[in-house]
Design a protein around this nucleic acid. Structure first.
Lengths: 196, 196
DNA sequence: CATGCATATTTTACGAGTAAAACACCTGCT
DNA sequence: AGCAGGTGTTTTACTCGTAAAATATGCATG
């Protein structure tokens, strides 16, 4: 699985859909779908430590739902997220980047970047120019149109995200950011850059 | 973006690769890649509230890295995660499920389930039987082999996940689970099941 | 009991990503 | 100079997922 696409799986064998059919009033207090799945696993395998599923399953499920949600404002602008990430990399660095740098910056394969660049170039959002010294490399930059598009979308995107997170209070969001940051440092150190 | 597939983007225009090249001792205290990206955005757009990116960007990035990591034990068993999720749904419910139920249970499209079932059936992990009353529906169940496979993989999977999370202490993990659960309830209520 | 609409599943056509091979070009060595 | 090997990018062949159409039933109604 390399998956191209879209719907992402949820994770760790944790993927569940609720179907508690209480038709009446009163909150079911059911918890989220991951909790339900974990409960199921525990009744079947009471001996297993399901702790990791509660974290990883939720991260994956949140990511899946968030992406669907976040796609909305982007689609509205006719962009997929990978495309927006590419444009965003150019915008936030303020530099011209080579396809290879863009691949690293957006965590995608070189081939994928090549294809995206083709599309974005055709749409006039991005522009390329060969390197004078080394004729293997290209330098990609935003066109004025592309830059305007990114700058136009970003605020919408952020306020949309803010709304999406609004169910968690400010303190909770900060705690989440910190904890996820800690986890990320570990993961990136362990999986991403074992260059030591 | 419907994406089929695999590598997921990171999110919210947040996708970055580090490249601080300190070769010497002393912790760089660089933080994670998302922090670096957020810093870049802030220098370019000092007026924007980048708070949401710190949460959503990290969730997406964690999900991306975790999936790569988690794929390892699964691949080892010759399964993709969506396949494992499907088998897992059958295992944890302990029931026969219809393709439609499996689709809901694993958050995927019916078409995707159809294809996976074809493969899993050919591999003898799963078994199908038509409904006597309603000839439109099929009932899918694990074969003994399939069941044994799931039961064999699950402990490996969990201990692998445990190791992957080991960078965060027990308390942190519980906090993460709770906060993500809160967020998930909101997201699922808002995006998933607006059936009221 | 025929008609029409709802539901369950599969099929079709297509888009996007990947891995690996192919290219094109540099660079250090002899 | 000439070549061996490395790096940057694109191409190729293929997989997998999706959306929408097609298929096959079931059910309610007149």
């Amino acid at each position: 699985m390399t998956a191209a696409n879209g719907h992402r799986a949820v994770g760790a064998g944790v993927a569940g859909g609720e179907s508690h059919g209480d038709g009446t009033a009163g909150r079911p207090v059911a918890g989220d779908t991951v909790a339900a799945v974990v409960r199921q696993w525990r009744t079947v395998h009471p001996d297993l430590d399901t702790g990791p599923m509660e974290v990883i399953g939720r991260i994956n499920r949140c990511a899946a739902l968030l992406q669907q949600a976040e796609d909305a404002p982007l689609r509205h602008a006719g962009l997929t997220r990978p495309e927006f990430d590419l444009l965003g990399a150019l915008r936030r660095t303020g530099l011209e980047l080579t396809p290879g740098e863009l691949a690293r910056e957006t965590f995608s394969s070189g081939a994928a970047v090549t294809k995206r660049l083709k599309q974005l170039t055709e749409r006039g959002l991005v522009d390329r120019r060969g390197d004078a010294r080394d004729r293997r490399v290209a330098h990609v930059r935003l066109t004025d149109t592309g830059r305007a598009l990114v700058d136009g979308i970003l605020p919408e995107q952020l306020s949309y995200e803010k709304a999406v997170l609004s169910g968690v209070d400010g303190t909770g969001q900060r705690e989440l950011a910190v904890l996820l940051g800690d986890l990320l440092v570990q993961l990136e150190g362990r999986l991403s850059a074992p260059r030591a």
